[in-house]
Amino acid sequence: MAHHGWGGRPPASDAEARQRIVDATARCIGRHGVRKTTLSDVAGELGVTRQTVYRHFARISDIVGEVAAQGAESFVDRLVAHLQGIGDPAEAVVEGMMFCVRTIPTEPRLSLLLQLDDSSAFGRGATTADAIAYGAQMLQRFPVDWEDAGIGADDLNGLAEMIMRLLTSLLQHPSEPPHDDAELRALLDRWLAPALRRPSVAVQGAGR
């Protein structure tokens, strides 16, 4: 690995080099915006050549994706902490959706996902197998006994897909005029929450 540039402080490893590239990209995006940030900007921020950046990332979109991914890790930790004490599946999912819709646009690194093309996590990438699997893993971290609620591992994949599709729509195409918190919560309570609740004994008996 070449040690030229880097502000006179060459990285000690490839991992450190990649992280410094990611951090430099985040700074450039803060100044120029995601669509105007180029590999040349990142290289200039670090005092290295474009070729040095290319050794670690093939495209600027790959670096931006890593910037967003690192923000996502911290975000999920805070989401799970926010849900502590909510053991009901329907309540946890609705509250989690509310947290995501209101928080993601305000998170500098996470909001990048809303500005990328359709391959991003909140574009067509939201329905890839990897994105759905990640969503299911996130749901497993909720303070919910999914098995006791009658929701198995395969169900979590389906639930994760529906959540990702709904989040994509809510984030990319908000209602006009926008829903306030009470209106959005009422919408989710009416149309999403019932799918996560067991039918009552009375309803089960009536269907026989």
Rank of each mutant, 00 (worst) to 15 (best):
L112D: 04
T106L: 07
S111Q: 06
Q19R: 15
V94L: 06
I63G: 10
D88N: 14
A43W: 09
A17C: 10
I21H: 09
T52G: 08
K36L: 15
I104D: 04
C28E: 11
T49D: 13
V22M: 00
R35I: 08
G87T: 14
Q19M: 13
E16F: 15
A92G: 10
V42K: 00
T52W: 05
T37S: 01
L113T: 02
P89L: 12
E107P: 06
A17F: 09
I104V: 15
R35M: 08
D77I: 00
T103N: 07
A43N: 11
H32S: 12
R102Q: 15
I104A: 02
E91S: 01
L110I: 03
T106I: 00
R109Y: 09
A92L: 10
V93H: 11
S111H: 14
T52L: 01
V34E: 09
K36G: 07
R50D: 11
Y54S: 11
R31Y: 15
R18S: 08
T103Y: 05
G71A: 01
R27D: 05
L39F: 02
G96C: 02
G87W: 06
R78G: 04
G47F: 11
D23Q: 08
R50W: 10
F75N: 03
A69I: 03
F75H: 15
T38P: 05
F99N: 09
L46K: 12
G71I: 00
G47K: 05
V42L: 01
V53F: 05
D88L: 08
L79D: 02
R102V: 06
E73G: 12
A58M: 11
V64E: 08
D77M: 02
R55V: 03
K36I: 14
A43M: 07
V67S: 04
R35P: 13
T37I: 03
S40I: 11
L79V: 10
A26G: 05
T52V: 10
L39M: 15
P108E: 04
A72S: 06
A90K: 06
F57M: 10
H82V: 02
G71S: 03
E66V: 02
I29C: 10
D77R: 07
H32P: 02
A17D: 01
A68T: 00
G96E: 00
L110R: 07
Q51C: 05
D41A: 08
Q51F: 13
R55Q: 15
V93F: 13
H82L: 05
L79T: 09
E95M: 09
T103Q: 06
Q84C: 08
A58G: 14
L79G: 13
T37F: 01
K36W: 15
S40G: 13
A58I: 13
C28H: 08
H82Y: 14
G33W: 08
D41G: 03
I63H: 03
L112C: 14
T25K: 03
D23W: 03
E95G: 11
E45T: 02
H32C: 12
H56N: 15
R109Q: 11
P89V: 11
M97N: 12
A58F: 13
L83D: 00
I86M: 06
A17K: 04
I86S: 00
T38H: 12
T103E: 04
V22D: 01
S74P: 00
P108D: 05
T52D: 03
